[in-house]
Design a protein around this nucleic acid. Structure first.
Length: 318
DNA sequence: CGCTTTTGACCAGCGC
DNA sequence: GCGCTGGTCAAAAGCG
């Protein structure tokens, strides 16, 4: 393992072949890339998987390929980065509601600062395929046992002791930003909303979703950037232990025909995008960076979509 | 009728 | 210990 914190936090101990969206079944990574992943404007070439570094240092074609692979199209752009949930990030002094990757230059620099997040730590332990026991479940468990007066204290104490003894483990998280007017981006999985919270320093609430599939504990958080309301920050937590329902139904076309980012794109690509060993850099995209902000202006239409998208357009200098 | 969303309440963790 | 904040629960309402 490298010293790269991304690697540790994002990759966990699973190695490079795992990705939160796809569970741990290696066969998942042999899934063919759907034809409709191909963007008519930026053709996605399955054989040209690239590493993150290649994306960063690579040609415009690589960038465009990446963009295409993300399903980036007219109205959405995406930046993806492993979401590191440092303890420090939970400090109250961290008031940033929006994670903000920092890139010194759009493509050339390879260092990315992992943004602080307002998330409080997740008290959960990861075990087989996301079957975790978090504090809430513990609580529920305790509540369910509430009727049993006898031994109630004992079980509570046991739970407490267990919680105390357990070292908090971070769920694998993966966050990305999309520029979209729609908060909850379709990703092929079915989600049930279980909470909504106002976010400090933000006018926009944060929504909490849970995968509706039984025994799948994947959660996702969706919030809007308080800095740029056009940006939706989606954070996935955990691994699906099942196939994507939409894919199984064979109607995945809608996944990619949508103009929004689909995290369901080929796992091979995700694997390739993960930061390799001994590599301090990470990228995944380019969109939400200083350069982008610098380019905001009358010449660009943030909401306009189409080829006006500055994040795409600027990769194609005329 | 079953599933999803809404929303107020509750809890845990953290800083002071 | 207290207050703040994020995260979750669960009953009620909404919806198809």
């Amino acid at each position: 393992m490298s010293d790269n914190p991304f690697y540790h936090d994002y990759m966990g101990t699973e190695g490079i072949n795992t990705f939160p969206f796809f569970g741990e079944n290696p066969s998942n990574y042999d899934q063919p890339i759907p034809n409709n992943m191909q963007n008519p404007h930026h053709q996605f070439v399955p054989s040209s998987y690239m590493t993150l570094t290649e994306c960063l240092h690579g040609s415009m074609d690589h960038y465009n390929t990446l963009s295409s692979a993300f399903g980036m199209s007219c109205s959405s752009s995406v930046v993806v980065y492993p979401h590191v949930d440092h303890q420090d990030s939970t400090k109250k002094s961290s008031v940033h509601a929006t994670p903000e990757p920092v890139l010194d230059s759009p493509l050339g620099e390879t260092s990315v600062e992992i943004p602080p997040t307002p998330n409080s730590s997740i008290s959960s332990t990861s075990n087989e395929a996301g079957g975790d026991i978090d504090s809430s479940k513990m609580k529920k468990h305790m509540q369910e046992k509430g009727g049993q007066e006898e031994g109630d204290d004992k079980s509570k104490k046991e739970c407490k002791a267990k919680k105390k003894g357990e070292k908090k483990q971070k769920e694998q998280r993966f966050a990305f930003m999309t520029k979209s007017e729609i908060d909850n981006l379709e990703d092929g999985y079915r989600w049930r909303k279980y909470g909504q919270k106002a976010v400090k320093n933000s006018n926009f609430p944060r929504n909490y979703y849970r995968c509706t599939t039984q025994k799948c504990s994947v959660k996702k958080r969706v919030e809007r950037s308080y800095e740029d309301p056009s940006i939706v920050i989606t954070t996935y937590e955990g691994q699906h232990n099942h196939h994507c329902p939409a894919t199984l139904r064979g109607n995945s076309s809608f996944l990619y025909s949508s103009s929004h980012f689909m995290p369901n794109f080929p796992p091979q690509l995700f694997a390739q995008m993960l930061p390799p060993n001994n590599q301090q850099n990470l990228l995944i995209s380019s969109a939400y960076n200083n350069n982008y902000h610098q380019h905001q202006g009358p010449e660009y239409s943030l909401f306009g979509g189409g080829t006006d998208d500055p994040w795409i357009q600027k990769q194609e200098p005329s």
